[in-house]
Amino acid sequence: MKAFLKWFFTYITAFFFIFYFFQSASGLESTPPEGLKVDQSQEDAPAPKVHIHDLMPQVVVLDSMANLYEAVEFDHEMHAVEVGCAKCHHHIVEHTDQTCTIHNVVDQTNDPFCARCHKGWFPGSLDKAKCKDCHSPDRFTADYLNKIEKDKDIYHRDNIGLMGAYHNQCMRCHVEEGIGGCQDCHVRTETGDKEFRADAGASGATKKSSEDGH
């Protein structure tokens, strides 16, 4: 409960700040029709005083594969400090000086494809820094599939699901760092051991089920 309240207040504060900056920016700038600004506004607007690191989650618990693997406590803060935000949050611009603000999170995108439409603007607000707002945790449920098959208004139909998004982001670096094995991050449960037939071949009986007669 305490944790919840803490997050709740953090988010409220965050909302407030975003609201504030949008207000002040547009006020200063006589609003270009596209609503796109960015660098200029950054200079003009009073620098935000709240550091993003104070607003983001410290730990994210990933438990969607809980039957095969125990939940992973993802050290969000460590990753943010060590590798920066944009490495994973691919729609924002990295600030090398580690002083990026909420403002930056929603303001800009460094993905050239996203930027074609979304430059300087991302729908909603800070919420959109959350992976699952674009990457559905239910990518292959009937509902989701039906929606992208039938609903003509949806533009982004091929958004990778949440689990896929995570793994694609994580594995890029983890493989390079040599910690690319599943169990380097995930502790396998008993069901997981069974799924992967961890005891297979242990009986010593030589079988040839996976090869032909040669």
Partner: peptide, 30 residues
Amino acid sequence: LPEPDVPFDDFSIFDTERHGGLKRRTSEGV
């Protein structure tokens, strides 16, 4: 399907070569 020759987390299987230097293929039980 029946128990595999090696567990599914055993990646040494990628080095398996079948007759004629071919890679693994589907088979009875795989």
